[in-house]
Design a protein around this nucleic acid. Structure first.
Lengths: 262, 262
DNA sequence: GAGTGGTCTAGACCACTGT
DNA sequence: CAGTGGTCTAGACCACTCC
């Protein structure tokens, strides 16, 4: 026996997929749909909720239900790491021009709004294990948000951890008011003699928590990409651990793996 | 004014996050929760639907509502490409032992069930553009599914495209009954003199379509990771284009980027 | 103010699970 | 068969948007 709300959702989904209803188009009101399908309004709402969870429509309270327009995606390329390393030893004037985020987004610094907050904490067991330091070692936690100046929501949420003693030789690194640091973290590490050798990144994806949905201004029916990044220096120490949360509807990750020649 | 179903969801979410309700634990029935919170059953259902969409609970019809257990994730490491390349020129006995999928999952071939279907098609404009061939060029489309023998759902959905004329020198490559091919696609390409130089992978994440949810047996409140992979040969031609759909609740992607030394 | 979606109710009946 | 979640109704009232 067919479920009414699924049949209605199937019918509407088909009409969206085949272009009968175009991106941005408004659907009939719930009351009209109820009449059209001969069902109650809550049943129509059930059907629309499915499509909303799939990311096909947006429901705007008081305004209507619309076919969602696909978002343009920002590309995050793993070339950014080599690119940032190359800049790390340049004079400040060159570094100041543009950073890794601008490299990804194709924007210049003026288009971006940057927010940073620093905090010291003693390493909990998981971070202590990862860094290979005793539990309770003092870490510097750096929380970043970046957004386009034209938009209200940031396009990433970043938390980065450094071992304080590893970088304390340059007191400027402990000062959040110096952000954004021209040349990024690799340049910061360079000022205390640390050279990054490789970057290891782990990705997973899941639906956003309510907090993430709020902070990133995510509509219903989107996912977040979680990136756990570890940077190793040339002595094989982990020198930075970052957790990055990216909006799945506006982010594309690009990775190139070069293979040895025969 | 606070919304009842959100307050109830907040309360339950808190009790799950802080461990008061442990993974696998059963929640009270909807009727009991309705009594406890002094609300109607549909309002309780509204609250539970939120938590389900966040991936925190599983609702099992006729059985109850349970706190979801985190799934163990299979790791997909970009080392797999170099690993597969190294094997591509080995004798068949060595290649037959284990493939890239086994490399990722740590399983042996006997634990895996493999399904492949081949089909020829003429290149639509997007694929023709990507390969740099005229529209209408004949392509080989290979559809793969891999699952653990102990489970019913596959852990990936793969569609791979090759230019038929590029590989037709070895007729065995056109025969789906020869799958699984020991040594994988890189070995297949090697038999017609193609050496893969680099692999480019693009990732995005979004909620599953109903078909994907069915095929991958995804519970509510999970995401899929979409991987668009292009393999380039040493002459800088694209030799393979693959689209891979991975279940977000069981997949972790690991990428290592090596940087040039100073 | 008219029209939209959002929330909530009280209850009926169905479908599935486990004993 | 008892207990669970799933679907659906008919209607009330609220909150928001836009004219």
């Amino acid at each position: 026996m067919p479920k009414a709300y699924e049949e209605i959702a199937d019918d509407l989904r088909r009409s969206i997929r085949n272009g009968e209803r175009k991106p941005g188009a408004r659907l009939p009101s719930e009351a009209e749909l109820a009449r059209h399908y001969g069902r109650s309004v809550p049943t129509i709402q059930n059907a629309l909720r499915l499509l909303s969870a799939e990311g096909l429509i947006d429901k705007l309270h008081g305004s209507g239900t619309f076919v969602r327009r696909p978002r343009t995606r920002a590309i995050r390329d793993n070339k950014r790491h080599q690119w940032e390393k190359n800049r790390a030893r340049m004079p400040e004037a060159a570094r100041a021009e543009t950073g890794a985020t601008e490299h990804d987004t194709g924007l210049v610094l003026d288009d971006l709004v940057f927010f940073a907050r620093y905090r010291e904490l003693t390493a909990p067991s998981d971070l202590a294990d990862a860094f290979g330091v005793p539990e309770g070692t003092v870490l510097l936690e750096r929380t970043y948000r970046t957004r386009h100046s034209a938009e209200t929501a940031p396009f990433n949420l970043v938390t980065s951890y450094l071992v304080r003693d590893m970088i304390a030789a340059n007191p400027e690194l402990l000062d959040e008011t110096r952000e954004p640091w021209p040349g990024g973290t690799q340049n910061q590490l360079h000022t205390v003699g640390i050279e990054v050798d490789r970057v290891e990144e782990r990705f997973t994806a899941r639906p956003p928590t309510p907090e993430e949905a709020r902070e990133l201004d995510l509509p219903a029916g989107t996912s977040v990409i979680l990136l756990h990044k570890k940077s190793y220096d040339v002595r094989n120490r982990i020198v930075d651990i970052s957790v990055v949360t990216l909006p799945g509807d506006r982010t594309e990750l690009l990775f190139t793996t070069h293979l040895e020649r025969w």
